[in-house]
Amino acid sequence: MIPLEHYLYLSIILFCIGAMGVLLRRNMIILFMCIELMLNSANLLLVALSKFHSDNSAQIFVFFVMLVSAAEVSVGLAILVMLYRNKPSTQIDLWKKLKE
């Protein structure tokens, strides 16, 4: 049996890779993907905890996370397509004016 710490470390590493990706890249699509990666690291941890606590509520939470991320991706990509029509680039820096 693999100790829970290993799952913790794995998901932390994945999470940090995702966070690093968000920092490093400027392409909106890749930012999205990094966010998905971070969400998945959390999911992994939830499933691991569910097994270690013998409680399937955590797996239900994973469902809801998947659901929310599916909704998020659909809306996010729609926004991206719309932005792309305005300015044919996916660089996030070009949309600084959205802060207003």
Partner: peptide
């Protein structure tokens, strides 16, 4: 981990 790095 490797493939996640590759994503980035």
């Amino acid at each position: 981990i490797l493939s996640a790095l590759a994503v980035v």
